[in-house]
Design a protein around this nucleic acid. Structure first.
Length: 310
DNA sequence: AAAGATGATTCCAC
DNA sequence: GTGGAATCATCTTT
């Protein structure tokens, strides 16, 4: 009697749903006030470019729509719950005239009712979470507002890539420098190199022309080395730019309908110590970063997957 | 509109 | 944490 446990045990899943709704600003105390502010602070905490403000307002309006629905539904359920509870209580009271009704029984009935309604609420919260996630993925997914890098930026990235073709894994410092030069973030540089490596390896032939182009460009720059608009700060060993003209020709050679077996390993000149200064984990992928070169259409073509899942 | 190019994300192994 | 691979969603070219 004393510790009447009408409080359900804190269902961890329900707690998670509640937390998420709170974090998304859906389950905030009042609409328009703190919740919206929290959302806008969370989604646009950095510098908000005028470009994305339109989408953000769209996002916010949709989110508040969800929030309104959520709150009205929640209220409806709560009201229905209390109504139903009082109704049952009245029934029990009436029955208590004709038969003994213990207060224990009343408590139990109330608990049952509350449990039922709270499960309904949980479902509501779940579907609300789903809606929010869909909304987020639709508006906040960076893939949806992809912009190609500037011509000059890809130029810089390609120059680095093809001049370090034997080991196209820029160090942190190199990435930073590239990011600065290209006006993109470091993770974008990482993305670019990841994509470039995999796509280059997949179809070397297609990139042959490009490789030649940049090899020649870099070679010219190495021999003449007239203009170098570098920011001369970097930590005392600015190296990455035109140090490896030897690499330039690694990508060029035997292109005559044959699959070029690339540098089998021996010729990676160890004299480029300046690169090694930077590299932290390149030893893992040193040298032949693309040894197993599967020619196109080497996969099992006819095999069905029958991988069905929703 | 279809095909290709490209930046970003996700899943996995290490 | 990283990078490889597959994939997605968009942009660009055809």
């Amino acid at each position: 009697m004393r510790n009447a446990q009408e409080e359900e045990p804190p269902d961890p899943q329900l707690v998670r749903l509640d937390n998420m709704l709170l974090a998304e600003g859906v389950a905030g105390p009042e609409k328009g006030g703190g919740a919206a502010a929290a959302v806008s602070a969370a989604t646009s905490s950095g510098g908000m470019s005028p470009d994305s403000s339109l989408e953000h307002s769209d996002y916010k309006s949709k989110l508040s729509q969800i929030r309104n629905i959520y709150h009205t539904e929640l209220e409806k359920y709560e009201q229905a719950c209390s109504e139903f509870t009082t109704h049952v209580m009245n029934l029990l009271r009436e029955q208590s005239r004709t038969r003994p009704v213990s207060p224990r029984e009343i408590e139990r009935m109330v608990a049952i009712i509350h449990r039922k309604f709270s499960s309904i609420q949980t479902q509501l919260k779940q579907s609300t979470c789903e809606a929010v996630m869909i909304l987020r993925s639709r508006f906040l997914d960076a893939r949806r507002k992809r912009r190609n890098f500037s011509k000059q930026a890809t130029e810089v990235l390609n120059e680095y890539f093809y001049s370090h073709l034997s080991n196209p894994y820029p160090s942190e410092e190199a990435k930073e420098e590239l990011a600065k030069q290209c006006g993109i973030t470091m993770s974008q540089v990482s993305n670019w190199f990841g994509n470039k490596r995999i796509r280059y390896k997949k179809n070397i032939g297609k990139f042959q022309e490009e490789a030649n182009l940049y090899a020649m460009k870099t070679a010219l720059g190495a021999t003449q080395s007239e203009e170098s608009p570098h920011t001369p700060n970097s930590t005392g060993s600015g190296s990455f730019s035109l140090s490896g003209s030897a690499d330039c020709f690694l990508g060029v050679p035997p292109m005559n309908g044959e699959q070029p077996s690339y540098h089998m390993g021996a010729q990676d000149a160890p004299s480029r110590f300046s690169d090694r200064l930077y590299s932290t984990r390149e030893s893992r992928t040193n040298g032949n970063w693309q040894e197993q070169n599967t020619p196109p259409s080497a996969t099992s073509p006819g095999s069905d997957h029958s991988d069905n899942s929703d």
